[in-house]
Design a protein around this nucleic acid. Structure first.
Lengths: 280, 280
DNA sequence: GTTCAATGGATCAAGTTCATACCATTGACT
DNA sequence: AGTCAATGGTATGAACTTGATCCATTGAAC
């Protein structure tokens, strides 16, 4: 797969704190009668860089990759020199971040040839989480953007003719996700990672790198929100069933049905989150 | 390997400047899709920080805001202290960037109370552009992602009940864009800025900040590509006509029609770009 | 058991970026 | 004419990142 790295950067830009726009304080939408100079549509803007510490961002990037199932437990991360180049940070900074993960027990490091950094456990909600209550605006944005991205991805992939290897990847992702559900005692983290893998697999088949990047970023935001509410088996079961339906529609080459099912799936998560938000 | 597939790579990503998860911004405007090394279930990756210079990213962010019509010629930018906070860079860095824009004649600065930084002209293609031929992967990614975003935005906004101020903003954006077309001698840059304003106005009405940010970033990438091909009046005329149709569908509250028209509009640009790419 | 390539471990100088003060200018208001 | 608040202009030191270089460890291959 080559991925093309994405081109996208920014998509994420806005999130966390306030989000945004470089621009104008008042958005056009909110009534700004004077059309003069002032009313500029605030196009989201990107923070010129990512601010904060490169160090912290590196930790977050690594955690995200693991949480989203890019590296499963037992997997070996790329060699430090390679990983640093990939994340685009210096090896020194990457090592600081890896050191933290090691201290947290998320990875273990072995020296020597054939050594490397291995994932030993999935990050738990506490390893990363922000405390406090859920920001309604963040929830709304993440959930709705996800709806847009996943609906579109399902529609696009369903209208493509998939190669056997691609079909294989999708079915595997779907079944692994289902299997974890069946096994009792599995962690919410593991389900989330495999769930993310399934959805990101679909996103990848669109062959639109920016869409993949945006989906990954958004999925991670949603997972962070899900970490703040109780893990309910029933929802997982329902989720897995929907995955199966989506997969079938995609393989059957029915774009509109796939899109509709993806929409319903997203709406399920949305209602789950909103339900808890309103009662917190 | 670890889990099969993938080789894994990239940690994440997000585009341009933003980012969050860790991500980073990459350059905002110029997006650099570079197809990376290997492939993994690469969930898009994000550079942990923005690499490059915060300074350069700041310039790019400012140029982008101006190119996308966030600040029109004659507009005053926010005070340095505010702008720096918005872009999330130190005032010192922002000033370096503004200094460049001033040297380039894009903004002028006046001291004292009621002074500030004012936009004096739109950046021309050369102020920013990357030389060389168009990267097919970048074009494909930008154009297809735009298709996804704008189609979804049109559908969403058409299904909302707009407030009078919102309708006003849209119709104004549409007509201003058309007027510029009518006036002879207007620059491609001005049309692009107003064109972007129209589309971003629609994106804003979705009330999904992440969608707005992604649309702005993608629009800028496409504008950068358009800067590399001849500016054709006929296309502008066609574009304006389509804007009118999209606006009508949105105001009429016809989601599917609005989405279809937005799709056609995006496809027009796509074909225009691909046509020149294949002949370059 | 020796060799060797891949990989983690460590250090240091140089360049960036930030944060915080404080100064200078301007023009509306009184 | 004087006042004053908002805004740009300038300076300094701390903190962070990088990039380059060299060291240490490991286990497969010979």
């Amino acid at each position: 797969m080559e991925h093309g790295e994405s081109g996208g950067e920014e998509v994420t830009a806005a999130r966390a704190e306030g989000t945004n726009p470089v621009a104008a304080p008042s958005s056009a939408a909110t009534a700004t009668p004077t059309s003069g100079p002032a009313a500029a549509p605030s196009s989201g803007s990107a923070p010129a860089h990512s601010r904060g510490n490169v160090f912290e961002h590196t930790i977050a990037a690594l955690l995200r990759a693991i949480r989203l199932g890019q590296y499963l437990v037992g997997d070996k991360l790329p060699a430090e020199r390679d990983l640093a180049a990939r994340i685009k940070v210096s090896r020194a900074t990457l090592r600081q971040a890896l050191s933290e993960l090691q201290t947290a027990g998320i990875v273990t490091v072995r020296r020597g040839r054939y050594g490397g950094t291995f994932v030993t456990r999935l990050p738990s909600a506490g390893d990363d989480a922000t405390e406090g209550s859920i920001d309604p605006a963040e929830l709304d944005d993440a959930v709705r953007f996800r709806h847009v991205l996943e609906t579109a991805a399902a529609r696009i992939v369903a209208s493509r003719t998939l190669q056997s290897a691609e079909v294989e990847a999708l079915t595997t992702a779907e079944s692994e996700c289902r299997e974890v559900f069946g096994a009792p005692g599995e962690s919410a983290e593991k389900f989330r990672a495999l769930d993310a893998r399934f959805h990101l697999s679909i996103a990848e088949l669109t062959r639109i790198p920016s869409l993949v990047a945006a989906s990954a970023s958004t999925r991670d935001r949603i997972n962070a929100l899900l970490d703040r509410i109780p893990f309910i088996e029933t929802n997982v079961e329902h989720s897995c069933a929907q995955h199966g339906e989506i997969l079938d529609a995609v393989l059957a080459g029915d774009p509109e049905l796939a899109a509709e099912l993806a929409a319903q799936h997203a709406e399920g998560t949305e209602q789950l989150l909103r339900g808890f938000l309103e009662h917190q």
